[in-house]
Design a protein around this nucleic acid. Structure first.
Lengths: 337, 337
DNA sequence: CGGTGAAATGTTAGCGCTCACAATGAGCCA
DNA sequence: TGGCTCATTGTGAGCGCTAACATTTCACCG
């Protein structure tokens, strides 16, 4: 038995059957111009030889890579990894492969490098999931030869972007608290160079504004439970706050922890609402009332947009996709004032 | 200004400078056989024209793709996404790109399809992060033209695999409980077709065996907080259990929740230990004692192994990498019996 | 000042595939 | 029978690059 040389080519398959390489190509590309019997024999030969089409050669001649690039910040966090998973699934569905570049730190320069890297792989579109606004702007400013789709950190003016309506989600969360009779709601914010953090904060303000109420104190957070814990310690020591809106569930968990540590009884002494509906949210103590986002739909839409942009070339911009609306999930961590 | 045609090729750059395309190639490949001044001019031209090397053409002629494939199950879970992130970073470090295929459901057939997909992308190695053992076996049985590296679900006999010593981690966790004076420790297991689940269970048994103690009751779980919650309800209703080892942190969180719901006081009435050291573990109530794994090192090692295997070709198998040893993180959820 | 070897550059031939077009053959009608 | 059409298959070129080899340039020596 001869050692397995380099993998067989179309020519090998063709020779094996006694047809031309073009006929093999036709079979592969499902051309109707092949006699069923011939097709049969070619397919048989491909199986026997273990033929696998050479994607590089194909990409070279067609000038298309069938590849989408995704740069994802904070792949280890819940939201981003959900988005990555859904983009991957959606892309595969429509015959695209995906190249992933994770970011260890997010900044204009790291995002630029990541995008460059994807371009070197000849991706047909770049999806950026990095809510950090300066980084997004940097990517936008790059004058790319392919469409760039935003999957996070979207702002109203953005084109070629899919996102979740953070303001609406936050407004619903805070509104819920206010409707429960709380006169003011404190906010532990996310890092304010993230679009999401700004928007959730905006929703918090809006909910108060709509009811002619003064928003409660605002504390800084960083998406993490640690940040939430620190903020919670401050809050527990503080004054008359009866309700808190945390920028995300991790923050809310830290908050809960700090309040317990301070000996408060929840939710009677203090109501807490989070954002994300992470898998653990239903199992905090007390169970977290939060805002659920449909990440999987995000991925699908982003891929759809990318495809549309690829097809459309430099044509008219694709129809803008409305923001997805998240919904409130009421559990036990928020109670009547 | 002419519309941007298809992107410039080496020939374009060469013509622009007045050299041959081969000289451009030499510059690109850092050959020392280029006069510094020539190199300078070529680089200048590349910048001006926005030249970008065509990776397909390069892959075609070199017969190498500089691409690693990774199939990852449960990308949305904490561990897997951490692994994916670290593999990605490590691969990039050594000049490889990574193609990701996420699995929505894990089974022999879905894994096979995923691997096929990666092979069609001409990856130079496949990393499989899918602890589900039957799926792993299926991938192993495929007789691939490229190395396959296991990143999860590793068992002692496995070759070309990196993993974390789950048995040791579990033994440490349960040993900690036993050393605290508990006479027996209950276990809420993971799904037992996952190697990790089996191994953690084995560590639980081993810790008892070493001390000549009878293991406490065993309950079924599924890695999720929901599963832990169900098990916790049973446990709370039950007999004389004073300590529980949960298969992972999510399970432990569900457990904690159920015990609180049952009105128990933790950790006095019942001690709980988890596994994973997820970011939230420090902020449960009480803070979770758990086992920390260094995922990032996992990715690095996996990529290292893959590279070694790619280089080595069919040569002698690479030196086996010892399992990483996780360590116990003591917090508040486990107390003296 | 011709010869020499190393440094620098050029030339040519594909890699495996798709595209455009050419060629073959069978069926059919006048 | 000749010619026409359609279905099927074949041929040739070339995508952008690298590898192997060929050629030119040039500093330096006897």
């Amino acid at each position: 038995m001869p050692a397995r040389r380099s993998s067989p080519s179309m020519a090998d398959v063709a020779a094996h059957v006694g047809v031309s390489h073009q006929t093999v190509s036709r079979v592969l590309n499902k051309s109707p111009l092949v006699r069923p019997e011939t097709r049969e024999r070619v397919e048989q030969a491909m199986k026997e030889l273990g033929y696998r089409r050479n994607s590089a050669a194909r990409a070279l001649v067609t000038n298309r890579s069938a590849r989408l690039g995704m740069v994802s910040a904070h792949l280890a966090l819940h939201g981003p990894s959900r988005i990555a998973a859904s983009v991957d699934a959606a892309a595969r569905e429509v015959g695209y492969d995906v190249s992933l570049v994770g970011l260890e730190t997010v900044s204009p320069s790291t995002v630029r490098v990541a995008v460059e890297r994807l371009l070197d792989q000849a991706v047909e579109a770049v999806l950026v999931a990095a809510a950090h606004r300066p980084a997004i702007e940097a990517a936008r400013a790059m004058d790319l030869p392919v469409p760039l789709v935003l999957v996070q950190g979207v702002e109203p003016g953005d084109h070629l972007a899919v996102g979740i309506d953070q303001v609406a989600g936050a407004r619903a969360a805070v509104g819920h608290l206010l409707d429960l009779g709380h006169r003011r709601v404190a906010h532990v914010a996310g890092p304010l160079d993230w679009a999401e953090a700004v928007q959730r904060r905006e929703g918090w303000l809006a909910a108060h504004r709509e009811r002619d109420l003064e928003p409660g104190p605002e504390l800084a957070g960083d998406w993490s439970a640690a940040g939430g814990h620190a903020a919670g310690a401050l809050l527990a020591a503080g004054d008359d706050v009866t309700a808190v809106f945390a920028a995300n569930d991790a923050t809310a968990m830290g908050l809960l922890k700090a309040l317990h540590d301070a000996g408060l009884s929840l939710p009677d002494d203090l109501s807490v609402v989070g954002f994300d509906d992470s898998p653990e949210a239903a199992y905090t103590w007390p169970a977290l009332t939060t805002v659920a986002q449909r990440f999987s739909e995000l991925g699908e839409r982003a891929v759809g947009l990318a495809l549309q942009a690829i097809e459309g070339g430099t044509g008219r911009p694709p129809t803008p996709v409305p923001l997805l609306v998240p919904h409130l999930v009421v559990r036990d961590s928020a109670a009547r004032a």
